[in-house]
Every structure is written in structure tokens, then in C-alpha cells.
Nucleic acid binder design. Structure first.
Length: 694
DNA sequence: GTGTGCCTAAACATGG
DNA sequence: CCCATGTTTAGGCACA
């Protein structure tokens, strides 16, 4: 928990920086031209080629952005006129310029949102894994939610400003302009304050891993920051809220009541509906009844759910909706704090949008890549997602396609390159209909596919996308250990490796950490070694290839016809501890294992009887170790500071042997504990120990 | 239907 | 007592 390192969130590579920058640049560059270029609806995307669909979608978004920008410009002009003219407008003016009621801030909130429906349409053309789809949809939904909240807040903000301005109006025309100027000043000060809060908030988000802002990418968040705060916008924002007086005049005095309907806002909502299908459903719903009805009868305020105030950081509980409304008006009224929170929320939304843009870019690269690949093999119309691809891969003879030799030439550094899916299956749109639930089948398990190539090639992808890596915990732990300089990691370092390498494991730490501990204990391939500074874990790759677990429960029956030699060879309990009981340093232990592997000799211990070769080699290593230990422990480990790379001679937990099995130091009988299928995969021994790259 | 592998939760033990 | 670490067991799920 406490070791959730704070550095992972910023570990994006330069490639993603470039990608994000290009997205931003593209958006900026496209704006001036987009008005004349794109005239495609989301529905048209269905008829497009998969590669084109996303680009068109992006063009649509850019077009929408441009329209919004135009609206903003219009508003600026209109507000300029308003400022130059009299401060108060007649209702007629209001009717003539309905766009005045469109808050710039609200327009800013919906720059790049595609509806889930649109997203589905697009995605169903593509080749996607359920995980990727899930991630996209979650991001999209989060965006929608936040936008709704922001819109509600801005409505309320405007209404409250209406009231204030109405009061000012009653105070007399003479002082009105002065008051406005004073308020404008105060407002700007508030926003400046908010800017600082935003930066803090961004930093927090970054630390929490919610945002991934690369060092070279600072221009983006800074840009959005300044974009949200620049003086022009301050002016705009101020004018915009001050121009709502007429609206209030025509509507009567219902300023503070959030439940008060806002007929002039309907065009705004519908306008959004044109760009946001999900919101359209809301707006249409609202059009059927007043907002009052909406809030009171449906009680589905975006800031109110399950009896809890959903204002950021609030979470106050309320019995009924009315008390919530009171709370909303009292606790979250227009003040410095609320304004700051609102602006922060805007930044959050902007960042999410940015992230979405990046992910869409990534998605496009993925789809382009996979689409090309999908035409190569026979287009089997079956399987579908990675799960199935795993299954397929398992049916294929491993030696026919050694994972290590897969010539992967990434089209994009972040596109997930899943050798198996590319080699053996085609991800079809049907896969989208499959559940996006947790994957129970991960490759590298039964046939012990080395996962290094995939992890290495998709490193950046897994680091940034909250996609569950399609590997078993045991495979991942092994990878982490083998990646370490000393081929050994403490439990804590294993945790850190997971959080560092996989965005997915930056959440639900309690769950996966527990699973890691269970795996370490249950898998015979993980060997715990103790030294004077603590304990660490190493990998017995041979055992990993066998994929055995520590015997749980009652020992399996050992039939007399089992081959005794094989039992010797397969002694996992011995491997689990006797090896380390000799006090071999992990590095040498790894070397030892490698030697064993090269000789195709299963790793067990010097104590175990077996081949003379093994015995002699083990003895030689032991002597070497003893000599080395005389020189003390010198070389430190980067990944495990404060711990000696050489374990102390004293060790370790004793293997809990069954009493009837514990006969003599050699414990040969423990072999009886093994699974009946212990020797199923001996043919893959030649693969061993060569995939500890990185 | 059954066996197997994996994941997850939980209980428990141990040591700092 | 709390927490981290480690072990063990049980149940659920997916798959062959």
C-alpha cells in the first residue's frame, strides 16, 4: 500500500509524448480548415473502412470544436457589443441573440466527446480486445458524467449570478457599473486563485497516476491551463455570467433555486445533443418536462446519487432530495471554493479528454495494425478475443512458433503487440460482444510461453493503459524477478514492479498483492531466500516450465507404477528450499540454474541424488560460493537497496514436508507429492532460461 | 459432468 | 495492536 510508488504515473515514454503532441497540434491546425472539410455524420462512419472510421470521427470532433470556437467568437463579439453599449439589455436583445445564453465554459466542456453509441459504431468496425474497449468506454462514460456535473454546476452558477445581479440592479443604475467592475476584479482574483488550485490538482492527479503528463509534454497541460485561465477568457467568463440578467428578468426571480427551469437553456442542451448522443437523451428527457420536474420527480440530479452528494470531495449523505438541494445551495454555493472546484473539475475533464485523444490515437494505430494482420491468416470467424487466441495458441505446437523468435516490428510503439493473437487468431468485431470481464486464461501458463517478448514490446502500452496483461500472475512475477539485475526481488519490489510496469496494477492493490503472495507461496518455481536483511524471491525457471504448485491439502496418492527417476527429477519441494539452503547467492543461483538448463538437467539440489554431472557441478558451485562468501558481500542491487545480494548461510523456512514423506535429509519421498502430470512438458526444456531479457 | 488451472478471498501465523 | 509478509484453504470461473 505505502509502496505504491509515485513514480510510475510519469513513466510514459517519449513516443507517447510525440503522439499526444501530434494530436494536440493536429487539433489546433485542423480548426481553421475543418469548417469546410468535413460533412460526415457519425452514422456515416458505419460505411467507412475501419482505418478511416476513426479519422472521420476525429474530423467530426474537430468540426465540432470549430463550431464551438465560432460560437465562442460570436459570444465574444456580442459581449463586446454589450460591454460597449449599455449594461442592461431588453428582452428583445435577448431574443435576437440566443447564443448569448450559451456559456462559453459549457461549450468548452464538450470539445472531443463522442457518444458511446458513436464509439460503439466505430469500434464495432474495428479489431479490439474487450479490455481496450472497456477502457475506452469507461473513459467516455467518465467524461460524460463529469460534463453533466459541470453543466449542472454552471447552470447553478449562472443562476446565482443572476440573483446577485438582480440585487445590484435594484441597488440603482448609478452604482451598477462600479459594482460590476468591482465584481469583475474579484472574479478575476478568484480565477487566479483557481489557477493555482488547478496546478496543484494536476500535480495530485499526476502523482496518483490519474494523469500521465510526460516531461516533454508539459506544453499540453500548461496550454490547457493557460487556455482555461487567460485574461480573455476571464473577461469572457465574466461577461457571460453578467449577461444573464435579462434572462432572469424574463424568467422571474428564481435565481438560486436549482430546480428552477431554464427555458432559454434548452437550445443549449439540444445543441449539445447534436454532438453528444448520450446527453441528447437527457436533454430530450428534460424537454418533455421542466427541469423542476426533472429534479424533483425524478430526483436524478447529476450531483446526487444513491443519497450521496456527488460534488467532488463532498459525499455528504442525504435522506431525501430536498435536503440535498438545500445542501447543494448552502454548501456548494458560488464562492471561491466552489468556483475553484469547478475549475479543477474542468481541468480534470480536459485532461480526460486529452487522455481520450491519446487513447484514440493509440486505438487507431492498434486497429490499423491489427487490420493489416487480420488479412494474413485464414479469417477464422471464431474466437475472437485474446482469451480465445490464447486457447488457439495452446493448440498450436509451441516449437512451431517459438515466441522468442517472433519477428515483431511494431508499427507503433504503444500498440499492443500480442504475438499470439496475431499469429493464431483474428480479433473480429464479434469479440466486442464478448464479456469484458476478467480474463481467466492467460497464455504462458500451461505451455509456459515466455512472456518476455510480449511484455517488452508492449511495455509502454501496459504501462499506460489500464489493461490487464494477459499473463498469469506467476508469469508476471517471474518476469519481474528475472528482469531484476540480481534475478531476485523482495515482495515489496515485486509489488513495485507490478505497479511500475502495468497501469492496471495501480488499482486494487489489496487484491492483486494478495494474489501475488498466494502465487509466490503456491508456485514451486518461486524460491524464497532469506538473508540477514530480510527475504527475497528468486525463480526456479525449471519449475516454472513445469508449472507445478505446492501440494495443497492432502498429498496426492502416489501410485507404485510411477517412475521413480522422474519423481526424483521432479522434486519441487527440494528445489523450493534446499537450493537456497546452501546459501548460494541469487546471481550464482541463477547461473547454476542456467547451467542446469544448458545441460538439460532439471534443477534440484546437491543433496538430491540424480546425475553425477549435477552433483559435481553443484559441488563445484558450492565451493565457489564458499570462496566468494569469504570475500564478503560487495555488489549491491539496484532493485533491492539495503539488501545483500548474497543470502546468508542460515536460511529459510523449512519445506513443510508431510510427516510420512520426511525421511532423511534427501527427502526423496517428497516427490510423491507431485502432481501426476509433472512431466508433461519436458519437451520444452530447451526453451528454458533464455527469455530473461530486458 | 469432470478435471485442471487460475484467480480471489479469507483465515491464520509470524515477526518487526 | 498494527502491519507486512507468508502459508494454506476454499470457492468460483473458464476451459478442455
Amino acid at each position: 500500500m505505502m509502496q505504491e510508488s509515485g513514480t510510475e504515473a510519469t513513466s510514459n515514454g517519449p513516443a507517447s509524448q510525440n503522439r499526444a503532441a501530434s494530436v494536440e497540434d493536429g487539433a489546433r491546425n485542423a480548426r481553421p480548415n475543418s469548417a469546410t472539410s468535413v460533412d460526415v455524420t457519425a452514422a456515416d462512419l458505419i460505411h467507412l473502412q475501419p482505418q478511416q472510421a476513426l479519422q472521420v470521427a476525429r474530423q467530426i470532433l474537430l468540426q465540432q470544436q470549430h463550431q464551438q470556437q465560432q460560437q465562442q467568437q460570436q459570444q465574444q463579439q456580442q459581449q463586446l457589443q454589450l460591454q460597449q453599449g449599455t449594461d442592461l439589455k431588453s428582452p428583445k436583445d435577448n431574443e435576437n441573440q440566443p447564443s448569448l445564453q450559451v456559456p462559453v465554459s459549457v461549450a468548452m466542456m464538450t470539445p472531443q466527446v463522442i457518444t458511446p453509441q458513436q464509439m460503439q459504431q466505430i469500434l464495432q468496425q474495428q479489431v479490439l480486445s474487450p479490455q481496450q474497449l472497456q477502457v475506452l468506454l469507461q473513459q467516455q462514460q467518465a467524461l460524460m458524467l463529469q460534463q453533466q456535473q459541470l453543466q449542472e454546476f454552471y447552470k447553478k452558477q449562472q443562476e446565482q449570478l443572476h440573483l446577485q445581479l438582480l440585487q445590484q440592479q435594484h441597488a440603482g443604475k448609478q452604482s451598477k457599473e462600479q459594482q460590476q467592475q468591482a465584481q469583475q476584479l474579484a472574479f478575476q482574483q478568484q480565477l487566479m486563485q483557481v489557477q493555482q488550485l488547478q496546478q496543484q490538482h494536476l500535480l495530485n492527479l499526476q502523482r496518483q497516476g490519474l494523469l500521465t503528463i510526460q516531461p516533454g509534454q508539459t506544453a499540453l497541460p500548461l496550454h490547457s491551463l493557460t487556455q482555461g485561465i487567460n485574461p480573455a477568457e476571464l473577461q469572457q467568463l465574466w461577461k457571460e455570467v453578467t449577461n444573464l440578467k435579462e434572462e432572469n428578468n424574463s424568467n422571474g426571480r428564481r435565481g438560486l433555486d436549482l430546480s428552477s427551469p431554464q427555458p432559454p437553456k434548452k437550445p443549449l442542451l439540444n445543441q449539445h445533443a447534436s454532438t453528444n448522443g448520450q446527453y441528447m437523451s437527457h436533454s430530450l428527457k428534460r424537454e418533455g418536462s421542466t427541469l423542476d420536474d426533472y429534479h424533483h420527480s425524478h430526483h436524478s440530479h447529476p450531483l446526487y446519487g444513491h443519497g450521496v452528494c456527488k460534488w467532488p470531495g463532498c459525499e455528504a449523505v442525504f435522506e431525501d432530495f430536498q435536503s440535498f438541494l438545500k445542501h447543494l445551495n448552502n454548501e456548494h454555493a458560488l464562492d471561491d471554493r466552489s468556483t475553484a472546484q469547478c475549475r479543477v473539475q474542468m481541468q480534470v475533464v480536459q485532461q480526460l479528454e486529452l487522455q481520450l485523444a491519446k487513447d484514440k490515437e493509440r486505438l487507431q494505430a492498434m486497429m490499423t495494425h491489427l487490420h493489416v494482420k487480420s488479412t494474413e491468416p485464414k479469417p477464422t470467424p471464431q474466437p475472437l478475443n485474446l482469451v480465445s487466441s490464447v486457447t488457439l495458441s495452446k493448440t498450436a505446437p509451441p516449437e512451431a512458433s517459438p515466441p522468442l523468435s517472433l519477428p515483431q516490428t511494431p508499427t507503433t510503439p504503444t500498440a499492443p503487440l500480442t504475438p499470439l493473437s496475431q499469429a493464431h487468431s483474428v480479433i473480429t468485431p464479434n469479440s466486442l460482444h464478448h464479456s469484458v470481464g476478467p480474463m481467466r486464461r492467460r497464455y504462458s501458463d500451461k505451455y509456459n510461453m515466455p512472456i518476455s517478448p510480449d511484455i517488452v514490446q508492449n511495455k509502454e502500452f501496459y504501462m499506460n493503459a489500464e489493461v490487464r496483461p494477459p499473463f498469469t500472475y506467476a508469469s508476471l512475477i517471474r518476469q519481474g524477478i528475472l528482469e531484476s539485475p540480481e534475478k531476485q526481488l523482495t515482495l515489496n519490489e515485486i509489488y513495485n514492479w507490478f505497479t511500475r510496469m502495468f497501469a492496471y496494477f495501480r488499482r486494487n492493490a489489496a487484491t492483486w498483492k494478495g494474489t501475488i503472495r498466494t502465487n509466490l507461496s503456491q508456485h514451486k518455481c518461486f524460491v524464497r531466500v532469506e538473508d540477514e536483511f530480510g527475504s527475497f524471491w528468486t525463480v526456479d525457471d525449471e519449475e516454472f516450465k513445469c508449472g507445478r504448485h505446492i501440494q495443497r491439502g492432502r498429498p496426492q496418492k502416489y501410485t507404485a507404477d510411477e517412475n521413480f527417476d522422474e519423481l526424483l527429477v521432479q522434486s519441487p519441494a527440494l528445489v523450493k528450499n534446499i537450493q537456497t539452503s546452501l546459501g548460494y547467492g541469487p546471481a550464482l543461483s541463477a547461473a547454476f540454474q542456467a547451467s542446469m538448463a544448458e545441460n538439460n538437467i532439471p534443477l534440484y539440489t546437491t543433496a538430491s541424488i540424480g546425475s553425477p554431472t549435477l552433483n559435481s557441478l553443484a559441488n563445484a558451485i558450492r565451493e565457489e560460493m564458499i570462496g566468494a562468501m569469504d570475500h564478503g558481500n560487495s555488489n549491491g542491487s539496484d532493485s533491492s537497496p539495503g539488501r545483500s545480494p548474497l543470502p546468508a548461510m542460515h536460511h529459510i523456512k523449512e519445506e513443510p514436508l508431510d510427516p510420512e514423506d520426511h525421511e532423511g535429509p534427501l527427502s526423496l519421498v517428497t516427490t510423491a507429492n507431485h502432481s501426476p502430470d509433472f512431466d508433461h512438458h519436458r519437451d520444452y526444456d530447451d526453451d528454458q532460461g533464455h527469455d530473461d531479457m530486458l
